[in-house]
Design a protein around this nucleic acid. Structure first.
Lengths: 221, 221
DNA sequence: GTCTATATCGGGATAGAC
DNA sequence: GTCTATCCCGATATAGAC
């Protein structure tokens, strides 16, 4: 009967998480109280805390789940022959997945700029989410056979990850209908990013590449 | 006696603002309560609220004051002959000014990424701060006689502003001793930014410029 | 208008009974 | 695992002294 118990437990946890996300979507993160979350999930406040040690912990759980959900969805689109296609597909999958939560994601990213906050995408707590992202970009590079200069190889996935984070930030702010502006920006910028990567292999542009690399190294050091 | 009263009032206000900033620096923004602020300023809690309608309002006052303080400091360094020098000087002045508050600036910028929050640097409340920044960059461009293609002229100050905001974000996260990493990044990136601006005038690079402009226009639309 | 003191509300978090 | 009751504290409203 242990299995049944565990299942029940997971179910309750899920119920609370769902209730929380629903309220976050409707009213925002800060505006939602744990009491309301518990009420919505039809459990006692204390129980919500039994499963999630804090309100922030719920958000972490959401990230974690997103990571797990996205894995297969991204694997599915890792098929394009061209790097540009891959980038577009990978990022679009994420936008699609997060779309229902776009508005309150903004409130969460609020914490993102705060170096001390555990919800920051740069913080330790979200490291495996970031690791998975990096791996996906690395895979897109290798599987499309994109030629990358040796000195850049180690850095490029991280640069692409930052490019992605920038787009996501823009997307959160994007008030245009259906976030069309983000869609246009994604297309135009992906084209440029790929062009730049290709250019970076030209021997003639070696000095320029070194300059950029210097910047990247300072950032990552 | 009206003047005396007004002076006294301004003094009290200042006292509360100072107390708040001191506590923010020591313990952080979120961890500081209005009660503590009031206690530190040796006034009643209600009085703190009399002068500042909310904790956020204190932050706004801080921004505002920073804007006024920075104006003469930046005017003072608008003397360099080269654009690179000007950029370095302008941004360094800001780092120096904000240095004592660097840590809690992070917590404030926390709000920055939240499109809905009034403390966001992109929000209406901080518009005149931003306007002043844009004007300073525009001035640096014209006074150094930097040649800028017509189609870029309108956008360049804003691009430089974003470049600055990026550096500030990096600086907030920078845990290196005395934020040396930021200092290095600033130098290396300013050099590159200026080089790019110069390159952008070359007729040969017109197509590349158009591509970048397209991106900028999507972002600003 | 400036200021103090007090009361109230609401939210995060916890303890302990079952 | 679950619920009830409670703690603690921050934010805020208000009454009224000066």
């Amino acid at each position: 009967m242990k299995a049944a118990r565990a299942a029940k437990s997971a179910e309750t946890r899920e119920k609370i998480l769902e209730a929380a996300l629903e309220l976050f979507r409707e009213r925002g993160f800060a505006e939602t109280s744990m009491r309301e979350v518990a009420a919505q999930a039809k459990v006692a406040t204390g129980l919500a805390y039994y499963y999630f040690s804090s309100k922030d912990a719920i958000v972490l759980a959401f990230y974690q789940r997103a990571k797990d959900d996205l894995k297969p969805l991204i694997d599915e689109v890792q098929t394009g022959k061209k790097l540009e296609t891959r980038l577009l597909d990978i990022i679009r999958v994420k936008f699609r997945y997060f779309a229902p939560n776009r508005k309150f994601l903004g409130a969460l990213m609020a914490h993102a700029a705060d170096p001390g906050n555990s919800l920051s995408p740069f913080a330790g707590e979200s490291r495996d989410v970031r690791e998975q992202d990096l791996a996906q970009f690395a895979r897109a590079l290798t599987e499309t056979g994109t030629p990358v200069p040796d000195d850049m190889a180690a850095h490029l996935p991280k640069v692409l990850w930052m490019y992605q984070m920038g787009l996501i930030l823009f997307w959160m702010y994007d008030r245009s209908e259906g976030q069309q502006r983000t869609a246009r920006l994604l297309e135009a910028s992906a084209r440029m990013v790929v062009a730049l990567i290709k250019l970076s292999s030209l021997p003639l542009l070696r000095p320029a590449r070194k300059t950029v690399l210097e910047l990247v190294e300072i950032v990552e050091s």
